[in-house]
């Protein structure tokens, strides 16, 4: 009894000490596995001077690869916003046999090594396609590969929000004469928007960095289907690590910008909502 009172007396202090320890652990861990490696990449890219950095990042083949990467990543993120929401909606609001199986399927692209995903997608949608679709080694193939690997992000971020949403508000809206589209636009969309944006941002970032599946499915034709990660790989293969780091830094910087932009948008939304 007495001991427990004593402990309670020191509890505040202990908690503070514990928090500091936790914070230190987090800092150390993040430094080791994120901050230091990223800093090293940036440092490596600038080692040969900014002239060399600029030259590497704006070299025509690098530019073509970067342009393709960002265009496809944006398209895939946008596609995920639509399809991810639809899938999440169906999984939450609809009841049908086999729903649990469908729900489990969503996460599989995470579990599959992406190079295997590339090979299987190619077998299905390549030149010897059993369904008669041949988009292997084209830009459509790149989109397909990235749509596959980014599928879970939007679904998994929107789904929990939909689950916690009570249907009362929508019912009220409908009683007041709003059609299903209007009630979705005015009631559901504002609620899921932050989760939707967060999911889209993750999908975008993932698409920008994807290597394993696109290297198989795209055919790696410079200026046509070669994405930035594959271009970086080719620079490394040619012992041009400086240029590889430079192109990587452009990828990093753009992803940071997009993530920060979406974060800002989200915060503004929340403030408006308040």
């Amino acid at each position: 009894m007495a001991a427990s009172t004593l402990a309670r007396g020191r509890a505040g202090q202990e908690v503070r000490g514990g928090a500091a320890l936790l914070r230190g652990t987090v800092t150390l861990y993040l430094s080791l596995i994120v901050v230091l490696p990223l800093t090293a990449v940036v440092w490596r890219s600038s080692r040969d001077g900014w002239g060399a950095f600029w030259e590497a990042a704006t070299q025509p083949q690098a530019l073509a690869a970067l342009r393709l990467t960002f265009a496809v990543a944006l398209a895939v993120a946008a596609g995920n916003v639509v399809m991810g929401t639809v899938i999440a909606w169906v999984l939450v609001r609809d009841q049908f046999p086999g729903k649990r199986v469908v729900n489990a399927l969503i996460d599989l692209p995470f579990a599959l090594p992406t190079i295997v995903a590339g090979i299987t997608l190619l077998a299905l949608y390549g030149s010897s396609s059993p369904v008669g679709v041949d988009i292997g080694y084209t830009r459509a193939g790149v989109v397909l590969a990235l749509a596959f690997v980014t599928l879970p992000f939007v679904v998994r971020s929107v789904q929990p929000v939909l689950l916690t949403m009570e249907p009362d508000m929508e019912e009220a809206a409908r009683c007041l004469g709003a059609g299903p589209l209007t009630s979705f636009r005015r009631i559901v969309l504002p609620t899921i928007a932050p989760a939707l944006l967060a999911g889209a941002a993750l999908a975008f970032a993932r698409a920008v960095g994807e290597f394993g599946s696109v290297v198989i499915l795209s055919g790696n034709i410079p200026y046509r289907t070669e994405v930035a990660s594959v271009h970086v790989f080719s620079l490394v293969e040619n012992d041009d690590v400086g240029s590889a780091a430079a192109v990587s830094v452009v990828l990093l910087a753009t992803s940071v910008l997009v993530l920060a932009g979406l974060n800002l948008l989200q915060r503004r939304r929340t403030r408006h909502a308040d």
């Binding site: 025509p60 083949q61 073509a64 830009r139 034709i221 410079p222 200026y223 046509r224």
Partner: peptide, 11 residues
């Protein structure tokens, strides 16, 4: 050559 082929086929 890669540049010529890639850019000309384009799309």
């Amino acid at each position: 050559i890669e540049r010529t082929v890639g850019v000309s086929v384009g799309s």
